[in-house]
Write a protein that binds this DNA or RNA. Structure first.
Lengths: 336, 336
DNA sequence: CTGAAAGCGCTTACAG
DNA sequence: CTGAAAGCGCTTACAG
């Protein structure tokens, strides 16, 4: 690989001149620009991005760590939509995306911290749904720009974040179900430690309260975001036949599919006897029988908004601030 | 941010000593290691990865550019499985993944070249299904390690690649259909310029020939990998009712879903009157009615194998060589 | 508009 | 085992 030096020699100019023609923003006479470009072409020169990054202290890269910790992470639509939104804006704005893997929630934070601390990226997006106070604090204390996808812990109201309207959207779903005459509505929530699940649970309680409906603890279950978890929730929520739910809200479609299977096995007709609403509008939702009514969460738009917030901050050389709550949309199909 | 200098000052040693304790592989007395670590802790020091990269000429990053050019790219299971496989091995081997977007096939190659030329990554994975000779040549002439996911053009037999057994797997599917008594079998292929589609078409012809079946041009159609393309293929392939196919093989599930819709609209029963086989075993395949028989392509394993090949080459400081052909597996369900 | 120099923050032969 | 120095390949005030 040739360097700026080689090109300079070839073109008969100083290396700094070569640097100037490649960095774009400098006054260079057309004649020398030509000479330099020609020399560069001959030597097949392209500036080394790493050297440039070290010098300008900017990598044109944003980091994200993906927590493929639960079964089905790469099957659910969350991940591809997240990447899609991130790539939409990083590409448009001339950035690249540095993706790190991890092997659990704790490690997710370690990896994110590592990307920040070692300056591998100009800023970082954190998607963890299990953020604790310390983690956010640690992430913030490197003053590299940081934006969360999801809500921050209450103590860190100052970090920038963007999220879906989990609480109110869930509340709306419950209201929708109540309007259709359901009184015993179950909530199948996924990982109980995740903040989304907590927000949705709040929305569930709010929706029930608003509709004047009592809540039985037996209706609240956690399917751990997996198909089998949804399946098992059927058994657990229907032990007392006289108190069995007539409607289920599941916090992702995978669990809704498990619920559907469990209900079908018991000969319970959906939506005839029991209504079912999933979340995420996964590719399979439209193709189930009955087609699954699902709460579509705008992950792609959320990811894009987060990336924009982050890049804005990077380019303005300040910590990102503010937050955005994007609206979900209930896709009504046949199951409810 | 503190640097190696600050830590050296604090610990009363030379900067090179600090470097040595952090680089791991150097003889350092336990006493000075302690002093250095303590100083680093106090100053919250972590080595700057960019500076290190410049010095060692290694980024511990591999690049990939994702071509979200066709409708449904982020819906199909190819993309998430690809990322899953890549993350599995990059994570395990201490690498990160640098992902670039692009806005079309031509740009895909520009981006890949850019990542290489600017040394942003130690090696690159190319997933393009529309590789031409020049592109591969250009990519190779930077002698950064390169591995293709998919077949190389014939002229570049020396690049390393890993792919699914597209040709023979498709041939097997045709044989399977022929064994079940089908004689008029259609091929709905996706983007005709993509190499996968060409390989599958070869497999189709081979399968038909092997079964002693004539092929009618009317049975070959391109759905451009989109649901609607599959839908439209129904009309085009059935103009001559007496020659209408009794079985369809579609090169992805999205198109198979479109075919299913088109057939249903015409009152044609699947699998009663017409058999249908898709490709990729997308999440929705199992949940369609009838459940879709689909050729499962081991994308995650392919991506993992490619990443391993690439990282092996990077660490051995040589161009990767060889290739791997991973077996697909027909998931038999109800549609065929 | 262009050159000469110092610097970005590490690493690593070379001595001792 | 540790220090002093040169180098990785750029950028960017500072002069002129």
């Amino acid at each position: 690989m040739s360097t700026i030096r080689d090109v300079a020699a070839q073109a008969g100019v100083h290396p700094s001149t070569v640097s100037r023609v490649f960095s774009g923003n400098a006054q260079i006479s057309e004649a020398t620009r030509q000479r330099v470009m020609e020399a560069a072409r001959q030597l097949n020169f392209q500036p080394n991005a790493i050297a440039r990054s070290l010098s300008v202290r900017r990598t044109k890269t944003i980091g994200v760590v993906v927590p493929h910790v639960f079964d089905g992470y790469f099957v659910d639509s969350f991940f591809p939509q997240l990447m899609a939104g991130l790539l939409d804006v990083t590409y448009a704005r001339g950035y690249r995306l540095l993706v790190g893997g991890c092997n659990g929630y704790a490690d997710e934070h370690v990896q994110a911290l590592d990307i920040l601390a070692t300056h591998q990226a100009d800023g970082i997006l954190v998607t963890s749904s299990r953020l604790d106070v310390d983690t956010v604090g640690n992430l913030q204390c490197h003053n590299t720009p940081l934006v969360l996808i999801g809500h921050p812990p209450a103590q860190h109201a100052n970090v920038a974040w963007v999220d879906a309207d989990n609480r109110s959207a869930t509340q709306e779903v419950i209201a929708y179900l109540a309007r259709r005459g359901h009184r015993r509505i179950a909530y199948v929530g996924g990982d109980p430690d995740s903040s989304v699940v907590k927000e949705r649970l709040e929305g569930y309680y709010a929706g029930m309260a608003q509709a004047g409906l009592p809540v039985s603890e037996a209706w609240i279950d956690y399917g751990y975001f997996a198909e089998d978890g949804g399946y098992q929730a059927v058994e657990r929520t229907r032990r007392d036949a006289s108190n069995a739910p007539t409607a289920y809200y599941a916090a992702n479609d995978l669990m809704a599919i498990g619920l559907l299977r469990g209900l079908r096995e018991r000969g319970i007709d959906v939506p005839g006897e029991v209504a079912l609403v999933g979340t995420n509008d996964s590719p399979e939702a439209a193709h189930l029988t009955p087609a699954l009514t699902s709460l579509q969460v705008p992950y792609r738009a959320i990811a894009a908004a987060a990336a924009n917030l982050l890049i804005d901050a990077i380019e303005d050389e300040e910590q990102p601030t503010g937050h955005q709550l994007l609206a979900s949309c209930l896709i009504e199909r046949e199951s409810a």
